[in-house]
Measured scan of single mutants.
Amino acid sequence: TEYKLVVVGAGGVGKSALTIQLIQNHFVDEYDPTIEDSYRKQVVIDGETCLLDILDTAGQEEYSAMRDQYMRTGEGFLCVFAINNTKSFEDIHQYREQIKRVKDSDDVPMVLVGNKCDLAARTVESRQAQDLARSYGIPYIETSAKTRQGVEDAFYTLVREIRQH
């Protein structure tokens, strides 16, 4: 089974770092803004072998026109913010609204991801993020692309959301 996953969120929150940590098991430290990259990885989730087709997208506003296209083809979405960047957390709402509009559905598989949880300088409390996820009816997972904490959990949870859909 193949799953088309799309990673969305503001610029600099760590979308590529999360994806590369999942696929290649290493942490990319330097920031190089993405336009669009796709990665494929075969994994076993709950005993089922599946192929993850992951689209890593641009957070930069100037590429926002490309969003409709990949939102149409994606089956599930990782909505990523950084726990030390309140603005990126506030941006999640717009991504969710755009996904709902493009998919013409209120019920699209999504996982809210709070990345950079290895950093002490948190400005978005776990509780705020949990409340937001609960209001959307989606899971919330904290990750660190640096330490790998929660990385597999985030992507695998999204696959489970798609399966249950």
Rank of each mutant, 00 (worst) to 15 (best):
T1A: 07
T1E: 07
E2P: 05
E2T: 04
E2Y: 15
K4N: 15
K4W: 03
K4H: 10
L5G: 01
L5R: 01
L5C: 06
L5W: 00
V6M: 05
V6I: 07
V6D: 03
V7Q: 01
V7N: 04
V7A: 08
V7M: 07
V8F: 03
V8Y: 03
V8D: 01
G9I: 01
G9W: 00
G9E: 05
A10Y: 03
A10I: 13
G11E: 08
G12E: 13
G12F: 11
G12H: 15
G12W: 13
G12N: 14
V13W: 01
V13T: 13
V13S: 12
V13D: 02
V13K: 02
G14M: 00
K15E: 00
K15I: 00
K15Y: 01
S16A: 03
S16G: 02
A17G: 12
A17D: 01
A17K: 01
L18R: 02
L18E: 05
L18W: 03
T19M: 05
T19F: 00
T19E: 07
T19H: 00
I20P: 01
Q21S: 14
Q21A: 15
L22D: 04
L22G: 10
I23C: 12
Q24S: 15
N25G: 11
N25V: 07
H26K: 01
H26E: 13
H26W: 15
V28N: 06
D29G: 13
D29P: 13
D29Y: 07
D29W: 14
E30Y: 08
E30I: 10
E30P: 07
E30K: 09
Y31K: 04
D32E: 15
D32K: 02
D32L: 05
P33W: 03
P33D: 01
P33T: 06
T34S: 06
T34W: 03
T34C: 00
I35V: 08
I35K: 07
I35N: 07
E36V: 02
E36P: 02
E36N: 03
E36F: 08
D37P: 01
S38D: 07
S38L: 15
S38K: 02
S38R: 04
Y39R: 01
Y39G: 01
R40L: 07
K41H: 09
K41T: 13
V43F: 10
V43T: 12
V43D: 10
V44R: 12
V44P: 11
V44I: 09
V44S: 11
V44T: 12
V44A: 13
I45Q: 13
D46M: 09
D46Q: 11
G47W: 06
G47F: 05
G47A: 10
E48D: 06
T49N: 11
T49A: 09
C50W: 07
C50P: 09
C50M: 12
C50G: 10
C50V: 12
C50T: 14
C50A: 12
L51G: 09
L51K: 10
L51T: 14
L51F: 06
L51A: 12
L51R: 05
L52D: 04
L52P: 04
D53S: 04
D53A: 01
D53Q: 01
D53C: 06
I54L: 11
D56I: 00
T57N: 08
T57H: 06
T57S: 08
A58P: 06
A58N: 13
A58S: 10
A58F: 00
A58Q: 13
G59I: 05
G59C: 03
G59T: 02
G59M: 05
Q60G: 14
Q60L: 13
Q60N: 15
Q60S: 13
E61K: 11
E61T: 13
E62L: 15
E62Q: 14
E62M: 15
Y63I: 09
A65D: 01
A65H: 07
A65I: 02
A65P: 05
A65V: 10
M66G: 09
R67D: 13
R67E: 08
R67M: 13
D68L: 03
Y70Q: 00
M71H: 06
M71E: 04
M71T: 08
R72K: 00
R72M: 01
R72T: 04
R72Y: 01
T73P: 04
G74P: 03
G74M: 08
E75T: 12
G76Q: 01
G76I: 11
G76K: 00
G76D: 04
G76W: 05
G76H: 04
F77W: 00
L78E: 00
L78Q: 08
C79Q: 01
V80A: 05
V80M: 15
F81Y: 08
F81D: 01
F81Q: 00
I83P: 12
I83D: 06
I83C: 11
I83T: 12
N84M: 06
N84W: 03
N85E: 13
N85V: 07
N85Y: 06
N85T: 05
T86C: 11
T86F: 12
K87E: 15
K87S: 11
K87Q: 07
K87L: 08
K87V: 06
S88K: 14
S88F: 07
F89Y: 14
F89S: 05
E90T: 11
E90C: 09
D91N: 12
D91P: 06
D91L: 15
D91R: 15
I92G: 00
I92H: 00
H93D: 14
H93R: 13
H93E: 14
Q94W: 15
Y95K: 10
Y95N: 07
R96V: 15
R96G: 04
E97K: 08
E97H: 09
E97V: 06
E97G: 04
E97I: 04
Q98N: 03
I99A: 03
I99Q: 06
I99C: 07
I99H: 01
I99F: 04
K100W: 04
K100M: 11
R101C: 05
R101H: 00
V102I: 10
V102M: 01
V102Y: 07
K103D: 03
K103Q: 01
K103Y: 08
K103P: 03
S105T: 12
S105Q: 11
S105R: 09
S105D: 12
S105K: 15
S105V: 15
D106H: 10
D106A: 15
D106F: 05
D107F: 12
D107I: 15
D107V: 09
V108R: 01
V108Q: 05
V108A: 06
P109Q: 02
P109R: 10
P109Y: 05
P109L: 05
M110N: 00
M110H: 00
M110I: 10
V111E: 00
V111P: 00
L112A: 06
L112Q: 01
L112G: 02
V113K: 02
V113H: 00
G114Q: 03
G114F: 01
G114A: 13
N115P: 01
K116T: 10
C117P: 01
C117Y: 09
C117F: 08
D118I: 00
L119W: 06
L119P: 09
L119R: 10
L119F: 08
A120S: 11
A121S: 12
A121Y: 13
T123L: 06
T123K: 07
V124S: 11
E125I: 15
E125F: 11
S126A: 09
S126W: 05
R127C: 12
R127I: 05
R127T: 14
R127G: 11
R127S: 11
Q128W: 15
A129E: 03
A129L: 14
A129T: 03
Q130M: 13
Q130S: 10
D131N: 03
D131Y: 04
L132C: 05
A133N: 00
A133P: 00
R134D: 11
R134G: 06
R134P: 01
S135G: 10
S135W: 05
Y136K: 07
Y136I: 10
G137L: 05
I138N: 07
I138Y: 01
I138T: 04
Y140S: 02
Y140T: 00
I141W: 01
E142Q: 12
E142K: 10
E142T: 04
T143F: 02
T143G: 06
T143E: 00
S144V: 13
S144M: 10
A145P: 06
A145V: 10
K146V: 14
K146T: 12
T147E: 14
T147M: 09
R148D: 14
R148Y: 13
Q149N: 06
Q149Y: 02
Q149G: 10
G150A: 11
G150C: 14
V151I: 14
E152M: 10
D153T: 08
A154P: 10
A154V: 14
F155L: 09
F155T: 02
Y156H: 13
Y156Q: 13
T157I: 06
T157K: 10
T157H: 14
T157W: 08
L158E: 00
L158D: 00
R160S: 09
E161T: 06
E161L: 12
E161M: 11
E161Q: 08
E161H: 09
E161S: 10
I162Q: 04
I162N: 02
I162S: 04
R163L: 13
Q164T: 08
Q164R: 14
Q164F: 09
Q164W: 04
